[in-house]
Design a binder for these strands. Structure first.
Lengths: 236, 236
DNA sequence: TCAAACTATGACATTTGCGTGACAATAACA
DNA sequence: TGTTATTGTCACGCAAATGTCATAGTTTGA
């Protein structure tokens, strides 16, 4: 997994800096915001993997932000760790009910903060890993190792299965054949260049195998001439 | 069944220790938490089989925790026994509506506590057992150690019995041969790779042995090429 | 409009993984 | 003790999956 990005939301610059340095040292990328509004913009824009949110933002907007993030589907799955000034059970309870994932009480040690972050990220990761990937009525369920379109099972080989899984987890991005090979086959094989094309074709064929669907799922696997392939919900 | 883990949630260290010792003596493993937050983390992390929860945690967070546990799918099935300071009908009623499984009123005897725990665990256990072990007209009764299809007895060896039981308890999931071996044979044996196949075949054969059924039960044991086997009601 | 560069596709040989019948060793049982 | 059921292994056959190639089709830019 690549580097996780953490958004720090706190009105005190000193704390932002301190946390930022801590996270950098722990191998995270960090961005900062000093108020709820900037934070929200940054979240939409940069899609951080986790938000460190000060409970006591001026105007009590910390909890407001948390609530808002949870309400919106786009941001509902971004984990939040609250930073609370004092260890108050009231806050904790209220925060838990807002869907906050964990707490760190100020003052906190860098070690503790990093540990909490890692725990939350791992927990979320496990949850996501076994979650079914879905695009329209196309569904890939890693647990049952099954692909369905409109609940009808779709037949394909193991390689096409991995290929589709890769695309579903990385939509709207173009990947070169080399990159696809590394990600789907693993780095230690040599493949003829055209081989990727053939598997793309097989995947498309499998996605077209269900008759009478409203959407042509094969068309979601798009060729980007000179660059590679892309899985996208938007027409090319 | 392996050792059950009980999580003790109480703010008084003396009670935690006392209960912990009691549980150890009764053959349970126990972990402790002194507040709702730590408890929640421990539950996510350690997945205890039962939670002993003090009703009167500071800030009234005991009931909050119970409510929160019930809301989340991951924790909704973990049984909760409430520890109440005084025997108040109000508490009991309120607790029941939160989905609490039982009550123990302080002060309680170790003997009573253990009895309650065992009762709840057994109840939950029975519920789990009797739930998954029927598919259409195929029935597996763990007690009488019998399998029937449309009330007609099905003959199979002990290994196939365990295999079918495993599948019935874990439907819609793919298992690798290694995983099946660990779960059905136990971890300390070495089996030739093809051996699993042979037992799958014997199981399928047994499931086909009843003539004239509406459903081909053998077909529920599905091969997932390159991944393992899956028991599923849905066609592959 | 043409050539060059790139991609799609059908066909094919090879590899891989699974199903199956047979068999010997072992365990269960009368 | 003899008899039967159960179990694990093996060898073989088959079908799916895979990678490659040759050919056809498409796009791009001069």
């Amino acid at each position: 997994m690549s580097e996780s990005t953490i958004l720090i939301v706190d009105d005190e610059a000193a704390i932002r800096d301190m946390v930022s340095i801590t996270l950098d040292l722990a191998g995270f990328a960090s961005i900062s915001a000093e108020n709820a509004h900037d934070a929200h913009v940054a979240i939409i824009d940069k899609k951080p993997d986790l938000v460190l949110l000060d409970w006591m933002l001026p105007g009590g907007s910390g909890i407001e932000l948390a609530r808002r993030l949870r309400r919106d589907d786009l941001t509902a799955n971004i984990p939040i760790i609250m930073l609370t000034a004092k260890s108050s059970e009231d806050n904790k309870v209220q925060g838990l009910s807002e869907g906050v994932d964990d707490y760190v009480t100020k003052p906190f040690s860098p070690r503790e903060l990093v540990a909490r972050i890692k725990t939350v990220l791992r927990r979320i990761d496990d949850k996501q890993k076994n979650k079914a990937l879905q695009v329209f009525d196309l569904q890939l369920d890693p647990t049952s190792h099954r692909i369905t379109i409109e609940d009808k099972p779709v037949e394909m080989g193991p390689t096409e299965f991995r290929l589709l899984k890769f695309f579903l987890m990385n939509q709207e991005k173009v990947f070169s054949r080399d990159h696809i090979q590394d990600s789907v086959w693993g780095g230690n094989v040599y493949l003829e260049e055209r081989t990727i094309d053939v598997h793309i074709r097989r995947l498309r064929k499998a996605l077209s195998s269900i008759e009478g669907t409203a959407i042509d799922y094969a068309r979601l696997v798009q060729t980007v001439r000179g660059a590679g392939y892309r899985f996208s919900v938007r027409p090319s």
